[in-house]
Design a binder for these strands. Structure first.
Lengths: 216, 216
DNA sequence: CAGTGGTCTAGACCACAGT
DNA sequence: CTGTGGTCTAGACCACTGG
């Protein structure tokens, strides 16, 4: 069915509902349901009294992506330097966030992301050992891809963004002068009701820009 | 129809489809379409083989809101001090953004937002004079409410966020020490295909946190 | 005007939950 | 097993669009 609109130019009319009824020998309600799905996906647009047409490219709001994917989208090749990768007890704060016991182990992963040869982001990520324990054995290039592969792709994230000044350590790692402005980003990422990631990131403030698309 | 689920607790079962058929004397397809709409709105959840239930509160991604609304959501009372409100020629850059002639007039509105008595944000907003020209006569408390009232509620926005250091002028207006970290936010807001707002904002970086909810 | 999508009827069979 | 939602048929009338 999807083949009927495969890569056609936006505005191209789709076959009418009654024509599809004849062509496939099904009821019109069935055709409508199939078309409804495509309309829901933004593939088609209905125009009452005129017809159904191939929709233009849809604007999609910023989704839940890791920095690696985010930068890759902009054509930046990202290299990751792992500074720390260990298993640590959750502790009070993280235990609350992950809703586990404070003694429960978490994976802690401190990374420096380098884009096009320059340090861009310093991040500290916590993951539940329950499904990320063996991550320490072979660290993935993209955390979000790896989570997805394990059936825990984050579908929801809450970010808090503020500006600050680089500490001495941050300045050294990010290779910026002390006191340079940085973006501080803390994230809580969920898959359904389970928290799959908590992270704190520090980004070069003047060079890196966070791009957001918002709908409605 | 919506009355059937009016403010019931999440998890409460809705009447079965066949029961609604009897009660309203309509076909089941009709009932399903009505229920489909409510499911689409996130009011109901279907559970095949079990029934249809009142859905829990839905997580909604960050939408297109002005700073006034944004802060109001967090209980901060915002006062706006207008520094400049004038009509100016678009100029090259803005003409491109708004897709108008460089000589076309735009409304330029420079505001200082004060939340709970402290300056929070300095913003420079450009609007098409076509539907915002008379805005200069009586400036609204909430720009987005006013745009909505004029049938130009922004449904799409693209933000770029970065960190920087306050210039002398910014520091003075925001009442922070010179060289303080600030969040710089530039926004392009659209209603459909028409650009309704371009703005540049500077926010106190250490005190103000941008909160984002991302889906999928 | 003829053709379109929007909506509706009154049935039907299926896969799946819970008992 | 019964009841649920998921899907389907083969018609029907409406409001709207374009020529």
């Amino acid at each position: 069915m999807r083949s009927l609109v495969g890569d056609r130019a936006p505005g191209t009319p789709a076959p009418s509902e009654r024509e599809l009824v004849d062509r496939f020998g099904v009821a019109r309600m069935t055709v409508r349901q199939a078309l409804d799905a495509l309309v829901g996906e933004g593939v088609l647009e209905r125009h009452p009294g005129r017809g159904t047409f191939v929709a233009g490219p849809r604007r999609t709001p910023t989704g839940v992506r890791g920095l690696t994917d985010e930068l890759a989208l902009r054509g930046v090749v990202v290299e990751t330097r792992t500074l720390v990768a260990e298993s640590v007890p959750a502790g009070e704060a993280m235990a609350g966030a992950f809703r586990v016991h404070p003694e429960e182990p978490l994976v802690r992963w401190v990374r420096l992301r380098v884009g096009d040869g320059r340090p861009v982001c310093l991040s500290e990520t916590y993951l539940p050992a329950a499904f990320a324990g063996d991550l320490l054995d072979h660290l993935p290039a993209s955390l979000y891809d790896e989570l997805a592969a394990r059936g825990h792709r984050p579908t929801w994230a809450e970010d808090a963004v503020s500006a600050g000044l680089a500490t001495d350590e941050e300045a050294t790692l990010l290779e910026v002068p002390q006191g340079s402005p940085v973006l501080r980003l803390t994230r809580r990422a969920l898959d359904g009701e389970t928290v799959v990631e908590m992270s704190r990131s520090v980004l070069r403030g003047e060079d890196y820009t966070l791009h957001l698309q918002l709908r409605d």
